[in-house]
Design a protein around this nucleic acid. Structure first.
Length: 524
RNA sequence: GCCCCUAUAGUCUAGCGGCCCAGGACGUCACCCUUUCAAGGUGAAGAUCGCGGGUUCGAAUCCCGCUGGGGGUACCA
């Protein structure tokens, strides 16, 4: 099917799924509820929203806005301070919103609890137009109904008891102050189609839908009412949200119709699964953004990994900077099936960014807070003129290839940053197939020739110590291992000469002497 | 129970009717590098494309059923 003429006349908007002809702006939103720390899954949907508006839309020559809206309509689950932390962690992650609670915007306020009158007005409008009705059923009655249904093995659900109350009578009872909710008058027959961008049309028989509560007894709206009214008022063009919303999407389409509004495009992104199946929980590792940050993951590595968990660019590309993602993301390439969270691969990507992508100075400044928290360096080392900065930078250069996360830094970099080594097992000083006496001789000889050794010249130092091994009749590996352990307290370290260079003559002398004492003190 | 979504190696994925007896990555294993451990390099194993029916000259790709997985079924979002 070709339409040669109209194709040419079509605006670029036609290239973006779900965008209505003539629309020049893509508006999306992330609408978290402040009920605690931000789950990684929410961040993933937030990322896709951001990438659509700030990446794909802009590439097509459209305006693109990403908004943040706080959905705090559940008074029972509200957590003090959660909203503040939410904004902080999303910014840390790298998302930027053009409109939101802290930055304002043309549709302020962006906090739903501050928009109550709007929702109440819309709910009553629905009642007035016969699309909704007051329901006076008590929680006790609803529970009893549900129990009876279960006993009879019927599908649970509201029995529409109050739907048949004459409007006048209902209005009187409301006027009299009787507690009630407002329920949607879901059509009893017909079917509703939800056009999901990544799945195509999803058709649902209306009879399987319930008369959902729109406005609660306390006057607060439910998600169904609140998100929809706000999305319309805030001119959201694409709703990108978790797949757990698919079952209630038909209700939302019906609600748009009841209001006489055009629904946005729906993009339901697949959920994240836990390694063994089921929900991702604490048991598997980090689940909230704050935990990933504490555990030393880089925001760009996390973003890279999350982007790949349900989206791909092509058959081979795996590493995407945030800029790359903005340049390459498209909703057409989102996948429809849920993906298992693979911590191992995340660690690999994190390591890759640490070792191959970040500049040394960048890495250094990121590693510093972790080292400071471990008490290895001064608390204010974060800037380049602090005396500890140069030391950390050198150690970082030497050890970055073995850091999977920033949190690994203290363990690996400790010997290079502290003055004296923590206690270690003296037996490590004696390499395999060697006697303590031989190790001691090796270390003594090394200590003796240290004054004449330029540790900053790694190649020269290596030549000299290789010769020493031969002189002593030791294998290079044996001598080197003894020195390594004396210098670091461990059998594993970066290349010996880089290690010695960074530790420096002064500390090395002390550590060699200490090791010699240890060996001398050992029972022969 | 009912409704909905989904299905390529252990995991994430490429594939949108012939180029695929299926490509990439993580993980695994081996080798190389080497003073240790990493990192890096090279290579290997691993998928009867969940199963069964169709459609078609031809299916991983389209359709149906089954099964597995996931989600929903709240005055939570």
């Amino acid at each position: 099917m070709n339409h040669p003429t109209t194709d040419l006349l079509d605006p670029p908007a036609a290239l973006l799924p779900g965008l209505r002809p003539g629309t020049k702006e893509v508006r999306v939103r992330l609408a978290p509820s402040p009920t605690g720390s931000v789950h990684i899954g929410n961040v993933k949907t937030g990322l896709y929203n951001w990438l659509l508006a700030r990446g794909q839309a802009k590439r097509l020559g459209l305006e693109g806005s990403f908004l943040l809206r706080i959905e705090d309509t559940d008074r029972n689950r509200y957590v003090e301070d959660a909203a503040v932390q939410l904004l902080d962690i999303l910014r840390w992650f790298g998302l930027e919103w053009q409109e939101g609670p802290d930055v304002g915007g043309p549709h302020a306020p962006y906090v739903q609890s501050e928009r109550l009158p709007i929702f109440q007005e819309r709910a009553h409008h629905l009642v007035a137009t016969d699309h909704a009705y007051p329901c006076f059923c008590t929680p006790e009655r609803l529970a009893a109904v549900r129990e009876a249904q279960q006993a009879r093995h019927e599908p649970p659900g509201y029995d529409r008891h109050c739907r048949v109350i004459p409007a006048g009578e209902a209005a009187d009872r409301v006027a009299a102050g009787e507690p009630h909710v407002i329920r949607f008058k879901t059509p009893r027959d017909g079917e509703t189609t939800v056009d999901d961008v990544i799945r195509g049309p999803i058709v649902t028989a209306n009879e399987t839908l319930e008369d959902a509560v729109l406005l609660k007894t306390d006057g607060y709206p439910t998600y169904h009412l609140a998100h929809l009214v706000d999305d319309h008022l805030m001119e959201i063009t694409h709703v990108i949200r978790g797949a757990e919303w698919i079952p209630s999407a038909p209700l939302h389409v019906l609600l748009y119709a009841a209001f006489g509004w055009e629904p946005p495009a729906f993009i339901h992104v697949p959920l994240i699964l836990a390694p063994g199946g089921g929900k991702l929980s604490k048991r598997h590792g980090a689940t909230t953004m704050a935990e990933f940050r504490e555990q030393g993951y880089l925001p760009e590595a996390l973003m890279n990994y999350l982007a790949l968990l349900g989206w791909s660019f092509d058959a081979t590309t795996e590493i995407f900077s945030p800029e790359d993602l903005l340049k390459k993301f498209s909703v057409e390439r989102l996948s429809a099936s849920p993906a298992t969270f693979d911590y191992q691969k995340l660690r690999w990507i994190n390591q890759h960014y640490i070792n191959h992508i970040l500049t040394l100075d960048d890495l250094t400044s990121r590693v510093i807070p972790f080292l400071a928290r471990a008490g290895m360096i001064g608390a204010n080392a974060a800037h380049t003129d602090h005396p500890d900065y140069a030391a950390v930078r050198e150690a970082t250069a030497l050890l970055k290839d073995r850091l999977e996360t920033l949190a690994d830094a203290p363990e690996h970099m400790g010997p290079f940053l502290v003055e004296d080594l923590p206690d270690y097992d003296s037996a490590l000083l004696v390499p395999k197939k060697t006697e303590p006496a031989a190790a001691q001789r090796g270390l003594e000889a090394t200590l003796a020739l240290l004054p004449g050794l330029d540790l900053t010249d790694e190649a020269a130092a290596e030549v000299r110590l290789r010769a020493l091994a031969e002189e002593l009749g030791l294998k290079t590996g044996q001598l080197f291992m003894a020195i390594r352990v004396a210098a670091t307290g461990r059998t594993q370290s970066p290349g010996l000469f880089g290690t010695l260079r960074v530790i420096g003559r002064e500390r090395l002398e002390r550590r060699l002497a200490a090791a010699i004492d240890r060996l001398a003190a050992q029972p022969a």
